[in-house]
Amino acid sequence: MNATVAALTSRSLLGRKRTLVLLLLPAALLGLCTLARVLAGLDPDIEQALNGPLAANLLTAFGIAILMPLLGLIAGTGAIGPEIDEGSIVYLLAKPLNRYSIAITKLVVAIGVVVLFGALPITVAGVVLTGELGTVTLGYGVGALAAGCAYSAVFLALAVVTRNAVVIGLIYALIWESLVGGVVPGAQTLSIQQWSMAVVQELLGDTAQRLSVEAAVGFGTGLALLTLVTVTAAAYAGNRLQTLPLHDNS
């Protein structure tokens, strides 16, 4: 970790228009959940559904499946991609700094952003939907944190490797995880979303079945894969920074 790298990174990550998008996504989730809560107050049927699988479904579909990958994509690529594109990364690289420490610092900043704009709002959304900081709320909060770490690390590494990281990341998150994963069961085992749902399912315990929360992989597998992917991606990003070919104008 390097405090100066962290300060410069968060400055450029939050200093642009992208902050607006970062705010918009959790605001939409909270708005939706508040609406569901208000409607539940008016209609007993909805209230019953909300006490059943509906709350969990909302948190899965909008929180884990949409909010977290998009935030991970913005924060992960944004923490390093623009600097590489513009060439300003040279100011970090022309210093007696360990490359792994640069990569890990940037990852920590990205994770901080997804916690602030993703995992925390999801926890708040859980409180709004269930009315308590109980098993469901905490399960989804921790699941979102796990997803955020993995997405940030993968997309950060992707941004070090290619300039098309945002496009490739979107294709992965929206097409592979959501579309293909929804149709082809095998694709679900290779999905950060499903690994994170395994964490959620484990934390929900017996409640999981009642709320029909079911991940495509077991808890042990999910946790191991999340850890493996996060650590490997961070190490790979650091390694690539050792020999990053700087863009040559001529």
Partner: peptide
């Protein structure tokens, strides 16, 4: 070794003082 790159881009959301100070800290 000190390097002045050809490209103009820096961390432009900070002031000149903050940027030079950050470079000193990175060293």
């Amino acid at each position: 070794v000190g390097l002045v790159p050809e490209r103009e881009e820096m961390y432009d959301a900070v002031t000149g003082w903050q940027f030079v100070l950050a470079n000193a800290k990175l060293h």
